[in-house]
Amino acid sequence: MKVEAWLFTGTAAFFAVTSVVYGWFSPDPAGRAALCVSFVMSALIAAFLWRQRVKGGERPEDHKTAEVRDTAGRRLYFPARSFAPVLSAAGSALIGLGVVQGLWLCLVGFGVLLPGVLGFAFQELGHAE
């Protein structure tokens, strides 16, 4: 996760510097908001990747001399069937339609999206065998 963490840290730093410079020279609030949101999203991903690296240790992919056989014994458990992707997609679509059609549909979309996000967050990804 070291390379990925550095990649998103650099992206977050780029958006931070760009949003400050853009905010200084441009009165456009939409551009400033877009750059700030981009900074926050990339910073959240970078923080997650740094935390996962500290929590899970280094992976064999992080070493330059690693070979394929070094990954033997490392297994991840992914459930064969999950409702989370379908609910997340349906909820996101309903929220998008709700922005255009009306607030009531947006609220229904959040109600459908919440179980999908919780399903992603709490499914077992590190099942020990």
Rank of each mutant, 00 (worst) to 15 (best):
L94P: 01
L103D: 15
F83N: 02
P115G: 11
V40H: 02
G102T: 03
D70I: 00
F39I: 00
E67K: 13
T11K: 07
A5L: 09
V21C: 08
G96H: 12
A5S: 15
A46D: 01
E129W: 13
F8C: 04
P27S: 15
D28L: 04
L118A: 09
G73D: 03
L87S: 06
P85E: 02
S88D: 03
E61L: 14
P85W: 01
V21D: 01
R69Q: 14
S42N: 06
T11G: 12
R53Q: 09
A16E: 02
A90G: 06
Y22G: 00
E124D: 13
G73C: 03
R59G: 04
V108N: 05
L113R: 07
A93N: 04
S26L: 09
S92D: 03
A47R: 07
R75S: 13
A90Q: 02
L44D: 02
H63F: 12
G96K: 09
E61H: 03
V17H: 00
G126M: 01
S92I: 10
R69I: 13
R51A: 01
A33H: 09
E129Q: 09
R51P: 00
Q52S: 09
V112A: 08
A72S: 10
A89C: 13
L44W: 10
A33V: 13
T9N: 05
T11D: 03
Q52E: 10
P27T: 15
K64E: 08
R75L: 14
L76P: 00
A66I: 01
E4H: 08
E67H: 06
L94V: 08
